[in-house]
């Protein structure tokens, strides 16, 4: 996947023949991070803290549902994906990219959690047959994240 051009709020990416099915496979895994995984506070939860924690969990769950709906709409939108020769063109707005980054990082972090949250250099982590799908999902999500970040970094800092 690479950025072809950007004009105003539109970023057009080229997806190679393998990129599109891989992107779909990664995005179809969403959500991966377990719900209620994130504590609001790491220390001494109070009664107020418990209420706030449950409000946070609800807000994150709602966000997830919205992301899932948006994701399905994106993957089915023929105007966003246009066949070109052997590959595809994917057109995204800056807002699309922002939430795609969130979705991709959910897949990346969630897969990492399933792998047991290895602390060592991830390049040294050797998956077995059982954990291979999660390791691949983590790496592929990271690949697409990097391409999206490269595309918007220049835009944001100028």
């Amino acid at each position: 996947m690479r950025l072809l051009r950007k004009a105003k709020d539109r970023f057009v990416f080229h997806l190679g023949p393998r990129d599109r099915p891989m992107l779909r496979a990664v995005l179809n895994r969403y959500p991966v991070v377990p719900s209620a995984h994130q504590p609001l506070s790491r220390y001494a939860p109070s009664r107020d803290g418990e209420i706030n924690q449950s409000l946070l969990d609800e807000a994150l769950a709602e966000q997830r549902q919205q992301n899932e709906r948006q994701l399905h709409a994106l993957l089915r939108n023929s105007r966003r994906f246009r066949k070109t020769g052997a590959g595809w063109q994917m057109t995204l707005s800056i807002a699309d990219i922002e939430w795609l980054l969130q979705v991709l990082n959910d897949v990346r972090v969630g897969s990492w959690i399933i792998l047991g949250s290895p602390e060592q250099d991830l390049w040294d982590f050797v998956p077995n047959d059982e954990t291979m799908p999660h390791a691949l999902a983590m790496e592929m999500a990271g690949y697409f994240q990097q391409r999206l970040l490269e595309a918007i970094t220049g835009e944001r800092d100028t």
């Binding site: 790491r42 980054l101 972090v109 991830l122 983590m138 990097q146 970040l149 970094t153 944001r156």
Partner: peptide
């Protein structure tokens, strides 16, 4: 407080801080 998760890319974390807090790079 933001805690370290080695799985997150450095560029990604920088980007998120910029977006959430409106900070310069």
């Amino acid at each position: 407080i933001c805690w370290n998760d080695p799985v997150n890319f450095m560029d990604y974390v920088t980007h998120v801080f910029q977006m959430v807090f409106g900070w310069q790079r």
